[in-house]
Design a protein around this nucleic acid. Sequence first.
RNA 1: GUGGAUGUAGCUCAGUUGGUUAGAGCGCCAGGUUGUGGCCCUGGAGGUCACGGGUUCGAAUCCCGUCAUUCACCCCA
Length: 430
Amino acid sequence: MIKSPRGTSDVLPPESAKWIYLEGIVREVARRYNFDEIRLPTFEHSELFSRTVGETTDIVEKEMYTFKDKTGRDLTLRPEGTAGVARAFVEHGMASGPLPRKFYYLGSMFRYERPQAGRYREHRQFGVEIFGSPSPHSDVEVITLAMDIAEELGLTGTELYINSIGCPKCRGPYKEALIAYLTPHIDELCEDCRSRLTRNPLRALDCKSERCKALVAGAPSSLDYLCGECKEHWDRFREILTAVGIPYTVDKSLVRGLDYYTRTVFELKWPPLGPAGSTLCGGGRYDGLVEQLGGPPVAGVGFGMGLERMLLANEKGEKPIQAGGEIDVFIVCPKGGEGEDKGFEREARLQELARAFRRKGLRCDFDPLQRSMKAQMKQADRMNARFVVILGEDEFRSRSASVRSMRHGWQKTVPIEEVLATIEEAGQNG
RNA sequence: GUGGAUGUAGCUCAGUUGGUUAGAGCGCCAGGUUGUGGCCCUGGAGGUCACGGGUUCGAAUCCCGUCAUUCACCCCA
């Protein structure tokens, strides 16, 4: 048997209804914030990611789904969303248009890693990006957007962690200071961090090994090395958060695993998900990204949000999405006997009646296999039908049908032309 | 990539120290009611016991390998 590839999953009913609801929420919140949807390719030139996300990051080093197409182009299934949006922004000359520009996207991301709770090789992400605003108001705007989504989904007690990693200007001296601090302790560092020291020293900061954590606790903080402008941005950013009443925790070890970030980085966590996968959403500022991709200097800020995790959290939260469905009408129409010309005419009326309900916007179904009345009644019950219309031989002789309320149990026979009106009226009364 | 746990029916799981034809509950289909759902009763369909190899007279059971699932680590959404 062929199964879905490792780390991927099928979303089946009734679970798929939860996804429709979830996607509706994120779209709606994005709309309120005046973000427009952007739809982009699922794969890009590999170079886009290796250059922007960074050669030394885990994503590029070991997690990309990279392949060559038939003419040898080097392509990669997108591991994250921001790089592609920035690419499109530059490609379509949007820097010359009105700024700032606000986008959201919704789609699958791919990373080759071992699956576990809340982590998949293909996962769906919602993300937003604001181009052309260096203002800390935009940092706060994307954060409140994410928090509003969490709130709509009944997640109380989300925690916001923030940090600033500065710009290329202040990062140089900071890296030097960090290396100077760590080098004397090189023998105490874990193997990974030893190689990080030369390749990407910032990454040593969020190492989970106890010894490294202890060591790093005394390490210089990027916050102490911010240049004048970055410092101003950082201070103002926190002032606004405080002013609008959003609690936050400054986490000096929060660096995020992608190279394009500058200044603000943040994560929104929901502790009940457990330490392994409690990050609902992560993002930050990427002021050099557009320029790096050949565009003019245009500031940017945004986040990516893991939708599987949002759903997982929602199920544990205070407002779990209700997935069980019901239908409005089930039409019972058992197969006709020989005496009735096999019931062919009755079957034609069945199709007409079903279509009439559907055109009125009612969810309606019937049994195409024409099983016994009992079987069809069971089917109607299983589908949680509010009403059943019985189009049986007896009724049909007098051009009528029976309408039955499955909730209340009453049943009455009315002329076929009145069936629709009868149900609409009964439906009004619950 | 590293470590642990687990793979038996569509689902949740039994299966004795290795011993005939592998079971239950739920679900599905049908009948009990040849025109009426839920409750009840009866019957039926459905399994290469994850896959491959080994030990044995005999393997769902023991051993090895592979794959998958899952939890944790690394890292991340």
